[in-house]
Design a protein around this nucleic acid. Structure first.
Lengths: 240, 240
DNA sequence: ATATCTTTATATGTATAACATAATACAAAA
DNA sequence: TTTTGTATTATGTTATACATATAAAGATAT
């Protein structure tokens, strides 16, 4: 038999799917902006010739991704979607596969390597002082316990993200904390006496000092050293 | 009159909100994994004592963020949410504010600066050859037109993301292309004869050569130079 | 016995109608 | 003028019925 190929399946869209597309068109055609209010459910239903149920389901989708908000009696208005929130919601269900988690962890490494320039451009005296306090606390605690504290790790790196002054980036980092601690917990024991290629280990104190008086270039290389065990772990994995 | 203070408002959750939370609990309690199927709408409705409509709306939210999928007669099964897709959907509506767009553009710069190590660890001969072709085509075209082509820009940088071998990162980049071209289009004219601090401009060819025989460190600094006009633009903006 | 077609049961999808609820506007009262 | 009640309205919720796709079982043909 002749192989059936190059034939597109008939569109298999539900009514709700179609309505959703139609709504998107409508928004574009009318060039609607944030804050604009849209017709009420019944009007849409009548105009499109479908039941209110279908309209509601389509609108509910938009509400779920944060494109519209609804209030009783007032109706619905376009809102600025919170792209991070969508991320959050999906993550809350703990259904991300191993591959995605790995990808996300790599993303974290990339971000910390790449944000040096923003840090140097936007650091304030207050930021540096706050970092100083964080590092000092860590140093104090580490005298007593040889235990590597995740808390201090989060405090320091979290502060860096905060300093970037990029809200999206910062919220992204908040979001990824669970993934980060997951990796931290599962860190193989040998990584505690990991052999750094340069011989020395760049501490938070070192990073802070460079941030005070150094350059983005030096900071990047120092951060690369600081993160070396993580990079090792990630890069030695053969990806399928 | 006594000032009314320290009184927390009663929770103002809709039924659907509550059901959604209850469903999340249910998934956790039963430790459900990807591929597991869940009870049908009517069973949930009866068990929770609400109408099928409310259950449907709650489930529809989950479907929208990609946590479940539904098929007629078969019922609903848990699926791995596609975190990027949620992003996509939100972006399609062109409702992102100026601030978010700026944040995202910064994110791009950060990513390109930070991914050097992944590139060097994962580059293959095929990748480098492909990049070579891309650069060659660009060089050929640029002889004729002095016009700076966005296409070549996208081809080159897009290939870099592809080489990272990080699917999430790569899809993220695909997603951000519109934002990128938006910035490209609105790039101020003077940036074409932008004065690079080091005097020389790092071309795609230069980056490629470093990728072939250089080190991540050198690549980072070269990329920093290559992106300098963009960094200038971003960093000179005073953020509120 | 295997493959293919037909039937049937079933869970989601859609439609309709009615009522509940909260927010707004406006009138009435203080 | 400010507060309080009241009507209105668009979304929120319920109930019920029917449509539709499809998995699964059963019937028929090869």
């Amino acid at each position: 038999m002749k192989k059936l190929t190059n034939i597109t399946p008939l569109e298999n869209l539900s009514l709700v799917d179609k309505v959703e597309l139609r709504l998107k068109e409508y928004f574009k055609e009318n060039n609607l902006k944030i804050g604009d209010s849209i017709p009420k459910e019944l009007e849409f239903a009548e105009a499109l010739g479908v039941s209110r149920t279908v309209i509601r389901e389509a609108l509910l989708r938009l509400r779920t991704i944060g494109v519209i908000e609804s209030k009783k009696r007032k109706g619905m208005v376009l809102t600025q979607p919170d792209i991070i929130q969508n991320f959050e919601k999906a993550i809350e269900y703990n259904l991300l596969g191993e591959q995605t988690l790995t990808d996300i962890f790599e993303l974290r490494l990339i971000l910390e390597m790449g944000m040096a320039d923003l840090l140097f451009a936007r650091k304030t005296k207050e930021d540096v002082d706050a970092l100083d306090t964080i590092v000092a606390e860590q140093e104090r605690d580490e005298i007593n316990t040889s235990f590597f504290s995740l808390e201090h790790e989060i405090a320091f790196h979290g502060k860096l993200y905060e300093m970037s002054n990029n809200t999206t980036l910062q919220r992204f980092q908040d979001l990824l904390l669970p993934v980060f601690s997951y990796v931290h917990d599962n860190m193989s024991p040998e990584s505690k006496d990991f052999k750094y290629s340069k011989g020395t280990f760049v501490t938070h104190r070192d990073l802070l000092n460079i941030l005070k008086t150094g350059t983005p270039e030096r900071f990047r290389e120092a951060m690369r050293n600081h993160l070396e065990p993580h990079f090792e772990r990630v890069l030695k994995i053969i990806k399928s």
